[in-house]
Each structure stands twice: as C-alpha cells, then as structure tokens.
Design a protein around this nucleic acid. Structure first.
Lengths: 136, 136
DNA sequence: CGAAAGTGTAACACATGCGATTACATTGAA
DNA sequence: TTCAATGTAATCGCATGTGTTACACTTTCG
C-alpha cells in the first residue's frame, strides 16, 4: 500500500497531493494515509506542507527511490519470529537455537531487500503504465 | 517455530517424538504442534505414526531439508498485499499498479527463498550446537 | 480382547494488529 | 479571519494466531 501511495505521488510529479486525494485513490481513509505519510516523512522519502492548500510530494525524483527504502520505512519490525516465545530451558535445542535462527532470518531479509533495491519507483510507474496500455 | 520443531526432530535423529514432547520444548500446547505437523506432513517433510508409542520423525536426513522448503510448507501465501484491497477505478495509477506490484513481490519472495535454500536443517542444528558451546 | 497412549480435529476464548471512523486541536495560505 | 488540510488520539470491527478443552479414532501392548 505504501508503494501505491508513492506511485501516485510519482505520477503527479512535483504536485503536492492531499491525503484526501490519496485516500480516494487507494480506496481508504485519509487518516490511514496520514499515518503512513508520517512514516515516509521520517524516512525522508516525502515532504509534507501543512495548512490550507497543503499536500505531500516526493523529496527525491522517483528514479532515486528504490523499494527497499520504502520497505524499511514502512515495515516496522521483522516479519519473522515472535518475541513472546521463550524456549524451554530444559530442552538442549531450544536454548541455543534462537540466535541461530535470528542469523538466518537476518540473512533472508537482507536478500529480500537486495532484491527490492533493484526496483525504483520510476520503474513501478513505468511498468504499471505499460500494463495499462496492454489491457486497453 | 516450525524450524524449531524440525530442529528438535533433527536432533533426535530417527527417534519418533510425540507432540507432547515437542510442545514441551517449544513451550506451547500439543495441539499447536499437531496443527503444525499436519502442514509438514503435507509437504512430505515428516512422517507421523498414530496410536500408542507413536510420534513424528523426519522423512529425509537433515542435510537434505533446506529452510526454503520449510518456509513454503508453513507460510501460507502470501506475506504481502491484501486481497480485499480493491483500487479506485477512477485513479489512473490504481487501476494498473496491482499486477506490477505482484511481480515485484514475487521476485522479492523468490530472492528470499533462494537465500533460505542455502541453509539446511543440519546447518541449523550444527550452528546452534556451536552457539551453545560458546555460551557455556 | 481391552486398556492406554497419541494423533486428528473441532469448538471456543483470548490477545494482537490493522483498517476504518470520528473527533478535535493546530497550522498556514488566501 | 477564515478555511482547508494535517497531526493525533480514542474507539470499533475484523482477521489472524495462539492457547485450551474435549472427543473420536487408531495403534501398540499386556
């Protein structure tokens, strides 16, 4: 969904877009969008002006924003593991396996980000536009 | 968690282990374990005997089971996207972006699995054991 | 055979997280 | 000043995952 929002911003390059317009595009609520925009602001991916006639726009050109950045900005914690899960001290495996799994998962997530890094927002917009053409 | 269970099975190589024992190791309920075992059975990763003196064991040696298989067996698709999310038909971006994003996500997940494929259950058990040594 | 051990499975409570909605204070441009 | 739009909190509903109990069915073993 974050990508969707950013894609719209990339589409209207430079033009500030309000959260109401974005919400309309994603078919959701302006508040949801604003919460998402906050994350993106903290990641310095967008800039938002307040007040009347306000809105958000990309702080960089779409060619310079890759999806790994978006992923990191939005995805709050690791998709794996559960923190509440405490292993049984009596089990010889349970005691030591957690750190091992963390290493594996870190590696896997890194691989995922490496792949996402290969695609920029501009790529997404271009591909989406081509897909649209083919459908029409 | 699935990896944890399989690691225990790999640890007691060959020996059938009951869901009660596994649950004790992961500090959870036998039913949770059994539900998980069902997925692993369908993926042909383990075999389970019913009745008295029953239990589960790996259907292959730990060296021949990689974590990508475990991931596929357990993680019901798909980690990204939300199916209920229908874009606004009026938005020029929203209409065409979904297929594009699916492609990107498929690629990313593939990259993740490629990385997981590099680690076998035997690797996990060995590394965990080494970690244990260092701690002691 | 029959009892005991374990799995398969359903039903339900509970916690968690996310999206949706409403409401309101605040900001900034016209 | 006015008004559009953001920032933010509170709350509800829904989906999902976990925990728990209960029970039928299967298999081994005495």
């Amino acid at each position: 969904m974050a990508v969707h929002v950013l894609a719209v911003l990339a589409y209207k390059e430079g033009d500030p877009v309000t959260s109401a317009k974005l919400a309309d595009s994603v078919n959701t609520n302006p508040v949801i969008i604003r919460r998402l925009l906050l994350s993106l602001q903290q990641a310095r991916l967008i800039e938002t002006r307040k007040g009347a006639g306000a809105g958000s726009r990309l702080s960089r050109s779409p060619q310079r924003i890759n999806l790994a950045e978006v992923y990191r900005a939005v995805e709050r914690h690791e998709p794996f593991s559960s923190p509440n899960n405490k292993p049984n001290a009596g089990c010889p495996v349970g005691n030591c396996i957690r750190k091992t799994l963390e290493l594996v998962f870190a590696s896997a997530e890194s691989a995922l980000e490496q792949d996402l890094k290969r695609t920029t927002l501009a790529d997404v917009v271009r591909t989406a536009r081509e897909t649209c053409m083919k459908a029409a």
